[in-house]
Amino acid sequence: MNLTLKVWRQKDAKSPGKFETYEARNISTHASFLEMLDVVNEDLISKGIEPIHFESDCREGICGTCSMVIDGLPHGGQPGTTVCQLHMRYFQEGQVVTIEPWRAKPFPVVRDLIVDRSSFDRIIQAGGYISVRTGGTPDANALPVPKQNADLAMDAAQCIGCGACVAACRNASGMLFMSAKMGHLSYLPQGQAERSRRALAMVRQHDSEGFGNCTNQYECEAACPKEISVAYIARMNRDYALASAKEMAGVE
């Protein structure tokens, strides 16, 4: 199949960007969207043009590296799909496809479609963990976890940190990402000790990174390649308010 691509090109964070138009020729419908871009890039390099810069790594939907907005939807908008898993059979012959980077202040563009998502790392660093040293831990079966809770923790823990939730959100809010980590840890008994501290620290970090606020439109859930539920955001809102109340009252 043949497609016309309108791709955002931007030399670096400081330079202004603009759309360039490229033709994708003879693309197999079995190819993934990124493989289609590989083919276009091979062609560009042979013409002496620098390839379209985009990030990808595992190409099986788990590392969370790939990130681009295709025709207005992060990862192309197929349910539960990262762009590396998006296959060309979803496109039509002759289609014009617009490709843009994630747009959010806390995700500055590095080059073309590559954005800097280190703000996500800093949110985790603020408290998205259970503080245990290596060694000296009790036997793994010492503390039973109800299967239902383990499953709810796992549902949230599946987050791949790709940032599609932020990209899809008109407020560029990082709340689905943040709430997934809080949800994961708060459903486990091991995560209780730091539950309040974690909620306060992560939300404050989120805010200081410049992410927007959630207006409950649930675009994030629809865009999430792991289909993480906005119910975790509700849980986070509750945890955060409780933690704040405890902090105000001086409850330790």
């Binding site: 963990y129 259970i130 245990v132 290596t134 060694g135 831990t137 009790p138 793994a140 503390l143 039973p144 976890v145 109800p146 299967k147 383990a150 923790a153 796992m154 823990a157 994961h184 840890l185 459903y187 486990l188 091991q190 995560g191």
Partner: peptide
């Protein structure tokens, strides 16, 4: 170690 860190193993 992993369980203490909160790895949600199947149960």
């Amino acid at each position: 170690q992993c369980v203490a860190q909160g790895v949600p193993f199947a149960r």
